[in-house]
Design a protein around this nucleic acid. Structure first.
Length: 782
DNA sequence: CAGTGAGCGAGCTTCCGCTTGACTT
């Protein structure tokens, strides 16, 4: 009997596939890449034709040993990693690493996890495609060269531990440039003229709210026009009705799921991915890292059945979507429920909500267009070129809108509500003007990027992959290139001109709110300075088209038209010369700004980036006397800090007084504001201001901390608490860093939430031990 | 855990893309 070993990338996939194949097949997972360039150094031998030095990743050693063992006991090995560049490389690394000599080795691919697809794949094996592997090697080597050669320049020229890369540096650039636009934006005022007309109808009079076809720049123009309306004749000169269709959005990809979950559920990109992972592992949805909008035949059939049974044939329209995304690799299907018959699932609230979104989007993608009737009414004004107009929509057939409406980003106008029915009206009818007003409005700046809209932009540029969108955001946040910020709305007084039949034009004001934004990405000083430095010296890498350009080369490597080492050499030679000259010739950059002179000493005061963050400095660096330094507070920035604010920073550390014969000193440290009393430190609460806090308040803080410490010490005396004796010895309870736990026979078991570690009975404790041991043995079997 | 920032020099930091599991006190 032939023994077969199939290796896939994901363990959840392995589990599913194992069911489809017979006893002769065992399926294991590689958990993604098993080998990579060593982390420590460049690990690319530039002088030896860019030979990469690969190393089994630390966390994969045991796995590789297990795989090797499995290979030994098999006759045929099937490398079934994903059908894309990275998947091909994984297959090759497996081939290189596992001892496959004497074994029959095949490369197989399937992008649909069904029995038919897998059996078909096994009947059509091939060899590892070295051209595709080389394209991946080129990608990997390029990214390492860029990241590991530019980053050290930043350490020496700006600040240690900074980083640069093909993806992250462009992400930061987008955010910096958007912020510049926002800061340079000057809002323009304009006047919108609206009027309502009485429309006679059977029962009661109805109103028709319309807007003038022209907007005015100034109040005078608006007022003039408004005045002209009195006594004019208004005639309906056009009632235009035409059918419109709306088409559903394609099924979710990683990027569109992140966007929709962000807008509709308020999830961060990372949270969406975490919950999607849980849904995937529970078998509720297909793979969540994908750039494909494609649905398998199986999924199409299943979704069609669901549409028919829930809404009937009339609502069904089968559609196949094709991707327009740059550089998409489409190794997986779109994100969809594994079983459309699961209209809802048994899970926690977040999982349910995300699943619901995926289910609805999938269903809607296979439903009929919504059919609407769009009506435009135009009302001519006697003797004027301008006219009033309004549009309405009436739903004739809901179609997919029955289940799902795609949300849009805040940069786009929100979709009109599908139902806005206008009163019946005839062309040529004369209408009576009810009210008219001209209201001032202001133009608004472009919205700042949210996590999800940044992902969308990166995807449009072809930068980054589904598996890296979330990590990229966390990297630029971790480096403190950008922060997430809320922006309070600004209240602006707007002029409102109302036409009053007897009195003419009445002037009043109305407050409007502008510029409110939540959870948007904003660059920090470091982000801005690093971006400027990179643009000045490495504009090629920061170019929005850099990735697209190198991807073309990678494609040519993949088709065998180019040799990967030559492509890399063509890039590296000039790049490395630039690295050397930048290191040699560029000056240290600190983003320094002169704020003014210290009123006391007359010395210069600067704001700049230092080794540990942004700071203010009094006195010149090269003068005889050592300058004084103070760290900036959270929320302050080089661009916006004033001289006065800067000088205030020097009031710390501040001696507030004496307590028990020891100095009480207030300051701000690495971990926030604190009080020091002798050699003991006490954190200040958020409400306490280190510049204002009194001695009494400091003493109170010290005393409270002492009491709580004493209580903790007392509590500690109670532990370890003896619960009782069992088979192998005493069971005790304790409280550790991660909450209450019990110890038995040298092993620790976490205590479920509803148990009090001091009151738990012996029987309950034994239960906890037993059930934990059961769980452990189960997971071991897996 | 609660400093620092110049300069000296040790030793450290860093990329993108593929995948999940951790198990402490």
């Amino acid at each position: 009997m032939t023994k077969n070993l199939v290796i896939v990338e994901s363990p959840a996939k392995a589990k599913t596939i194992e069911k489809f194949l017979g006893k002769d097949y065992s399926v294991m997972s590689s958990y993604g890449h098993i080998r990579d360039l060593a982390k420590k150094e460049m690990s690319i031998n530039v002088d030896n034709n860019y030979e990469p030095e690969y190393q089994i990743s630390d966390d994969k050693r045991k796995l590789v040993a297990d795989l090797q063992k499995a290979v030994k006991g098999s006759d045929v090995v099937w490398l079934a990693s994903d059908e894309d560049r990275e998947g091909e490389a994984i297959a090759w690394h497996l081939q290189e690493t596992l001892n496959l000599k004497g074994k029959e080795v095949h490369r197989i691919v399937f992008n649909e996890i069904t029995k038919t697809a897998i059996l078909h794949a096994i009947e059509n094996p091939r060899d590892v495609d070295m051209h595709l592997v080389d394209a991946q090697q080129a990608r990997r080597v390029l990214d390492r060269l860029v990241g590991y050669e530019i980053s050290p320049i930043l350490w020496s020229k700006i600040k240690p531990a900074l980083s640069a890369g093909r993806v992250q540096s462009v992400a930061v650039r987008l955010i910096v440039e958007r912020e510049e636009e926002v800061q340079n934006f000057e809002r323009q005022s304009y006047f919108r003229l609206t009027a309502s007309f009485a429309v006679p109808s059977e029962n009661a009079e109805k109103s028709l709210v319309t807007e003038l076809s022209r907007r005015f720049d100034t109040k005078d123009e608006a007022e003039q026009f408004l005045r002209k309306l009195t006594g004019k004749k208004f005639t309906v000169n056009k009632v235009d009705t035409k059918p419109v269709h709306r088409t559903p959005a394609p099924p979710f990809t990683t990027s569109t799921l992140q966007q929709d979950a962000g807008r509709k559920l308020g999830f961060s990109v990372a949270r969406t991915m975490q919950i999607a992972q849980q849904l995937y592992e529970s078998g509720y949805i297909t793979y969540m890292r994908t750039d494909s909008v494609n649905l398998s035949d199986y999924a199409l059939g299943m979704t069609a059945d669901t549409v028919k049974s829930l809404y009937g044939e009339r609502f069904l329209k089968q559609r196949r979507y094709t991707t327009k995304t740059k550089g998409a690799q489409e190794a997986h299907e779109a994100i969809r429920p594994t079983n459309m018959a699961n209209t809802t699932i048994n899970a926690d609230t977040s999982q349910k909500r995300l699943y619901d979104l995926i289910w609805k989007r999938t269903l809607a993608s296979q439903m009929s267009d919504a059919e609407l009737e769009k009506t435009t009414i135009e009302i001519a004004i006697e003797g004027e070129q301008e006219h009033f107009a309004c549009t309405g929509e009436q739903m004739l057939f809901e179609g997919f809108l029955k289940v799902y409406m795609e949300s849009v980003d805040d940069e786009e106008p929100s979709p009109e509500s599908p139902e806005n029915i206008l009163p019946a009206i005839d062309e040529g009818a004369t209408l009576t003007l009810q009210t008219a007003e001209a209201a001032q409005h202001y133009t608004q700046h472009q919205p700042r990027y949210s996590e999800a809209s940044l992902v969308k932009k990166l995807e449009d540029l072809g930068i980054g992959r589904p598996s890296t969108y979330a990590p990229t955001i966390s990297t630029i946040l971790k480096r403190e290139y950008v922060i997430k910020e809320d922006h309070e709305p600004e209240t602006v007084e707007c002029i409102v001109l109302t036409l009053d039949k007897s009195l003419g034009v009445k002037v009043s004001t109305r407050n409007e709110k502008y510029g409110a934004e939540k959870g948007k990405l904003v660059p920090t000083d470091i982000g801005t300075v690093v971006n400027k430095f990179l643009l000045e010296h490495f504009d090629e890498i920061l170019d929005y088209n850099f990735t697209a350009t190198v991807e073309k080369d990678f494609d040519e490597i993949a088709t065998g038209k180019k040799e990967w080492r030559k492509v890399i050499d063509g890039f590296y030679q000039p790049f490395h010369r630039n690295i050397l000259s930048t290191q040699q010739n560029s000056r240290r950059t600190s983003g320094q700004r002169l704020l003014g002179t210290d009123p006391k000493s007359g010395k210069n005061v600067y704001a700049k980036i230092g080794r540990y963050g942004t700071l203010v400095q009094v006195g010149d660096t090269n003068s005889d006397e050592k300058p004084r330094f103070a760290s900036m507070k959270k929320g302050q920035s080089i661009d916006s800090i004033t001289l006065e604010e800067a000088m205030n920073l020097f009031e710390l550390p501040r001696t507030v007084g004496k307590f028990e014969d020891k100095d009480v000193v207030v300051s701000v440290g690495r971990f926030g504001p604190y009080v020091r009393h002798g050699d003991k430190f006490y954190s200040l609460s958020k409400a306490d201001d280190p510049y204002e806090i009194t001695l009494d308040r400091c003493i109170a803080i010290i005393k409270v901390k002492r009491v709580s410490e004493a209580e903790k010490a007392k509590l500690k005396d109670l532990y370890p608490h003896t619960i009782g004796e069992y088979d192998a010895g005493t069971i005790t309870s304790n409280i550790g860093r991660y909450g209450p736990y019990i110890t038995y026979n040298g092993e620790n078991f976490r205590l479920p939430k509803n148990f009090d570690p001091l009151k738990i009975t012996l029987d309950q404790a034994i239960d906890v031990v037993k059930s934990s041991l059961e769980k452990k043995s189960k997971s071991k079997k897996k």
